[in-house]
Computed example of a mutant assay.
Amino acid sequence: MSFDVLNPGMLTLLEDSGRVGFQHLGITTGGPMDEHAFYWANRLLGNAPDTNMLEITFGQLQLKANATTSIALTGADLSATLNDKPISPWLTYAIQPNDVIALGMPKQGLRAYLAVKGGFNAPEKLGSCSTVKREKLGGLKGNGEPIKQGDVLSFAPTTQHSEQRTPRWAIPDYDAPLELGVMPAYQHGSFTHDAQMTFFTSPYEVSQNIDRMGYRLSGAEVKSSLDGIISEGIAFGAIQIPNDGQPIVLMKDRQTIGGYPKIGCLSSLGAGQLSQRRPGQIVTFKPMDVADAEVERRLFNRVMFG
């Protein structure tokens, strides 16, 4: 059975954990911008960690259920309702035929995740159904298109429902001041001590120019001694410094290579936190050791995957 898409919202994409092993062919990973919210949604439902779900940016999505199922909603608070009654993120909900799930405008955060018990039926392209519009890969029909009005999101119905909630300690505050750890990147040494101090002591504002490819930030200029570099592979969370000195944080749908100097790189969990910040919000940076990022990830994986 299925959900009927009454309104696709601003941008709703089908995402699993991403397309791995093809960056050498110029194919990016895709996958959820906020891995923390993504994996918690599947954990609440007892799904396999990689199970696909909807990533909803800015809200406005409306779905009508045609069968009984169980859903989890995590991530941003997008003023969600179930049959016109407000519901909160980080919980599971039982869904009955003719129920209508609607999301409004963001109250906190930017991206919500809606998972269904067992996942949605969608074709896999190169081992994943994650949507990357630029590459025409993934999504409901495998062609990289976002969810559209009139689409039918099919799933295996179930009457099994368990009321689950995310522990309070695991629920982020997307309005809280955000300080992100930065690991040194290959061109870190091309930035003078003064340039590095400027970067690590200055606030940066999330600009209007943000998407799944990258987050452009606005603030104190940072300059490298290099005019450019030979294009090289780019990791999720890499922080490029173009000629205007304004940082660009590369996200899940980034190009696979680039030629701007990189002052450092965020951890995947750090980049996920950034992906929940809206234009006008402020972020700051601090130095981070690779070992600290590894510990952070291992602790997260232990909670998520046992």
Rank of each mutant, 00 (worst) to 15 (best):
D253Q: 00
R254T: 00
K136F: 02
L226T: 14
L269D: 01
K262I: 01
V20R: 11
A112T: 10
P86K: 13
A293F: 08
G306Q: 15
H36V: 12
K252P: 00
R216I: 09
P89S: 08
K136S: 11
L103T: 08
M304F: 07
Q108C: 10
M288N: 12
L91W: 05
L226P: 09
W90V: 04
S202K: 13
Q255E: 06
R165I: 13
L217V: 02
I248E: 03
I263W: 00
G264K: 00
D292S: 13
L269C: 01
L137V: 13
T159F: 09
N83Q: 04
I239E: 00
T57Q: 02
A112R: 08
A112N: 10
R298E: 14
E135N: 10
L103P: 01
A80L: 07
V249D: 00
G9Q: 01
M251G: 07
R277A: 11
N42P: 09
R43V: 03
H161A: 14
A72P: 11
Q62L: 02
I234H: 02
L45S: 02
W40S: 03
Q164H: 10
R254S: 04
N301T: 12
P49V: 02
G150M: 05
E145S: 11
D292T: 11
G264C: 03
P167V: 05
P242T: 14
Y204A: 00
R297K: 13
A94Y: 09
S154F: 09
L126E: 04
L61H: 09
M1S: 15
Q196I: 01
P8W: 11
Q281I: 00
P261E: 12
M304H: 11
G9H: 02
S130I: 07
Y186R: 15
V132W: 04
A220N: 11
K141G: 13
D227F: 09
L180Q: 03
D16G: 05
Y174R: 07
T81N: 09
S88G: 09
T51A: 08
Y186S: 14
S275Y: 01
L153D: 05
G259H: 07
E163K: 12
L217A: 07
H193A: 14
E145K: 15
N47E: 12
H193V: 14
L178K: 12
E145M: 12
G139F: 00
F38D: 01
L137H: 08
A235M: 14
S17H: 11
R254D: 06
L54Y: 05
T131H: 06
L54V: 11
P49Y: 06
T51G: 08
G219T: 03
G21F: 08
G144M: 01
R297C: 06
